[in-house]
Design a binder for these strands. Structure first.
Ligand SMILES: [Zn+2]
Ligand SMILES: [Zn+2]
Ligand SMILES: [Zn+2]
Ligand SMILES: [Zn+2]
Lengths: 156, 156
DNA sequence: CTTGACCTTGTAGCGACTATAGGGTTTGCA
DNA sequence: TGCAAACCCTATAGTCGCTACAAGGTCAAG
């Protein structure tokens, strides 16, 4: 199986497959006389493992770790559980902060309904006033402290 | 006001301020004889505007657009509303796909409770079996199609 | 006169790809 | 046999929003 066929079977881009090999996630396949990569069922499984983990939002570093565990099955699995737990809490945090973000954006959006000129746009007005230190609907939902602007998003 | 003082007042890193200037988001300030950047209240506002928009998850490209609108206030504000709408729906989509992700991860986590060896770990077993084409708790919640693995996450 | 805190530019790194450029190979068909 | 299309290869640079150096210049206090 050439790389294009593997790409077709997995839905993964050719360039991404080569990238995974470069990163040491996918084992280097045998090459034909002309240097073409030839894949077998084992590597198809490897790639599907990677893609499955990626679809669960795991980092390549995490996947590398999981693959290492897969290789030495006599180890204790506590680290696997921890890895998943970390992933769950990371995702949970992201959900929470994005939900807040959505509320903030909706509150901001609510400042403009009709279409008029920018000068009268409640959205832009809110943003400009907030940059001058005044409270804003997005970050001060119910008459709270008008003071410092929290950096609500850490990493996205 | 030197760059360090501006950084202190806004909670933004010095390097990030210079980065915003390089990217054309923050107007280039006057320089002292020795080349130090000197900021005034206007640029403090500009930076706060940027930071406020960033805290709403907007991209630098979006912020550039908003700043352009701020500059020409005679335009119609429809584009602003659209920009916010796009941002809302992007965030909403992210929330939805992350919530699904969380459920998938929790289902996977549920496959291993006690600590034992990797060979018996239900999590790793699930991941390996899924890579061989079998259905998995994470992507096949209630006896659905065991067939192709959807790429559930587009961009994170 | 030295120390330390500040400032400058330029460059490289992160993560997970994606996209090119500039080639070589294989296959099918006239 | 000639040629084109479809495939493959490597190497390099770009994406986004920073962050972290390195190597040097400036300034105020002691
Ligand atoms: Zn408006
Ligand atoms: Zn706000
Ligand atoms: Zn386990
Ligand atoms: Zn699954």
């Amino acid at each position: 199986m050439l790389i294009g066929e593997l790409a077709r079977q997995t839905g993964c881009e050719v360039e991404t497959i080569r990238y995974y090999e470069r990163e040491g996630l996918l084992s280097a396949p045998l090459r034909s006389a002309s240097g073409y990569r030839r894949y077998n069922a084992e590597q198809l499984g490897e790639l599907n493992f990677i893609l499955h983990c990626r679809s669960l939002g795991m980092s390549l570093a995490d996947i590398r770790q999981l693959a290492a565990f897969k290789a030495d099955s006599s180890l204790a699995c506590d680290d696997i559980n921890q890895l998943i737990d970390r992933q769950v809490s990371k995702v949970h945090q992201q959900v929470e902060s994005l939900r807040l973000l959505e509320q903030q954006l909706l509150a901001l959006r609510d400042r403009c309904h009709d279409h008029h000129t920018v000068a009268e746009c409640g959205i832009l007005q809110t943003l400009v006033e907030a940059s001058e230190g005044e409270p804003c609907v997005c970050h001060t939902p119910f008459g709270q402290d008008p003071h410092p602007h929290p950096h609500s998003m850490e990493k996205q």
